[in-house]
Design a protein around this nucleic acid. Structure first.
Length: 424
RNA sequence: GGAGAGGUGGCAGAGUGGUCGAAUGCGUCUGACUCGAAAUCAGAUUUACGGGCAACCGUAACGGGGGUUCGAAUCCCUCCCUCUCCGCCA
């Protein structure tokens, strides 16, 4: 959510920014509703003042034993008029809020303008490995190694689910533990969070109402399965004013992520790239406004650190205005090298949401020198998507014989195992 | 799932239809006293929105929403949450 006053006072700038984000929101309607809300409020407030004064007077008169029935009828009229106006305001407010929730966060000035094709590579880390044989895809490798099975998952659930077996499952668990341990060293506090959340939480983090069709819903109980731990982490301090000195707060959580992936039929149908359920380690920060851009860099570095330690080639991309996420002003994607596809694929997304989520959730903090509480800035970043890391390891560390070498940093987490070999 | 209790300011805790944005205590801040501190005394201490250059003024908020009333923290309905006991359960 944007600050309505800011929007009002910077109409041209906001209009341009929304255009750059390919937003379909009708800004004129937004401003019109905001104006009407204000006008109505002003006139109803005047009537309320009159009613309040009169009611106070009635109390005094009654105490003195005077007959007040004559005034009651008159005030009833005023009271009814106020009620009617309040209803009108409520209707306007609802319309305003509906549109307000559709407005995305405005992109930072440093973000390239345009669609996906305007995304810019910031840097490359590591060189894609040259194979002296044709590298296999991870689903091929995984099946041959007996550690990955989609058919079993399809039987249990359906399309876009997976099962991992034996060392494959252990590798997944090793990755999760490795990531959490690394981030702990960077000052992130590990938290176990709910996977089922209420509507308000989904709205606060920016999933709802715009992306409601992408969420799995428990209709009987009004719960939603989180599409990312960001939702749970972002809402931990909803409605709170954080005391002086409590920022930054750096949290992380490992959770499965549940996504309907509506409208992606036929996309990435093979392998672990796009699933209804996948594991992820998520990082989240609450910071002072002036520190959020530095925090974004830190987030990217923490995510990149995992890839570097695992020896996986990757690149960092800054997303263009039309491709950045809804709640963010600036998003960096980390993309890992996937040999079988001969390309880089997203494995982490790090965003600075500035005060967009904080305004929706009412999350403030108090500064050192006193003063009014201000909205915090929030940031999120994957650190990393575990399934995609798993597949990147299989593909990048595959040998000609179909075996997969375990990256050195993971071996302690794998009971010292250095290579996964095909079952004879 | 059944029975009961409760949700009030940063915290504790009064208030059961009228001057209550809300007693009191604690905390915090400012001033006085002091070489300094403690203690003591005096004062201050919510947020959001709107109007105004400003001083300031208005409106709203006592878990959320709705209702009754001239007037609701207080009465009614409903939802949510917390706690206690019973049952069930990893």
């Amino acid at each position: 959510m944007l600050d309505p006053r800011y929007v009002r006072e910077h109409e041209a700038e906001v209009r341009k920014a929304l255009e750059n984000c390919k937003s379909k929101v009708d800004l004129s309607l937004y401003l019109d509703l905001e104006r009407r809300r204000r006008d109505l409020t002003i006139s109803v407030d005047k009537r309320k003042e009159r009613l309040n004064k009169a009611s106070e007077e009635m109390g005094r008169m009654k105490k003195e034993g005077q007959d007040i029935s004559a005034y009651q009828a008159k005030l009833k009229e005023l009271s009814d008029e106020i009620k009617q106006m309040d209803n009108e305001i409520a209707a306007v407010e609802k319309d305003f809020r509906d549109i307000e929730l559709q407005v995305c966060n405005l992109p930072d000035a440093s973000v390239p303008v345009g669609g996906e094709d305007k995304n810019q590579e910031v840097r490359k880390v590591g060189e894609p490995k040259k194979f002296d044989f044709k590298p296999k895809s991870h689903d091929e490798l995984g099946a041959a190694l007996g550690i990955l099975d989609f058919e079993k998952a399809a039987k249990v659930s359906g399309a876009r689910f997976f099962t991992l077996w034996g060392l494959g499952a252990k590798l997944e668990r090793a990755l999760i533990n490795f990531m959490l341990d690394q981030h702990t060293q960077n000052g992130y506090q590990e938290i176990v969070v709910p996977h089922l959340v209420n509507y308000q939480s989904m709205e606060m983090s920016g999933q709802f109402p715009k992306f409601i069709e992408q969420a799995f819903a428990m209709k009987e109980d009004n719960y939603y399965l989180i599409p990312t731990a960001e939702v749970s982490l972002a809402n931990l301090h909803r409605g709170e004013t954080l005391p002086t000195g409590s920022l930054p707060k750096k949290y992380m959580a490992y959770t499965p992520c549940y996504r309907r992936e509506a409208g992606t039929y036929g996309k990435d149908t093979k392998g672990l790239i796009r699933l209804h359920q996948f594991n992820k380690v998520e990082m989240f920060q609450f910071v002072e406004p002036e520190k959020s851009m530095a925090a974004l860099d830190e987030l990217v570095n923490s995510a990149g650190n995992i890839l570097s330690l695992l020896g996986l080639p990757y690149r960092v991309v800054v997303l263009a205005t039309g491709d950045k996420s809804f709640s963010s002003v600036k998003t960096f994607d980390l993309e890992v090298w996937v040999p079988s596809q001969n390309t880089y694929r997203e494995i982490s997304s790090c965003s600075n949401c500035t005060d967009f989520q904080a305004r929706r959730g009412g999350i403030k903090f108090k500064r050192e020198g006193g003063g009014k509480p201000e909205l915090v800035h929030t940031l999120n970043g994957s650190g990393l998507a575990v399934g995609r890391t798993w597949l990147a390891i299989l593909e990048n560390y595959q040998q000609a014989d179909g075996s997969v070498v375990i990256p050195e940093v993971l071996r302690p987490y794998m009971g010292g195992l250095d290579v996964i070999r095909p079952v004879k």
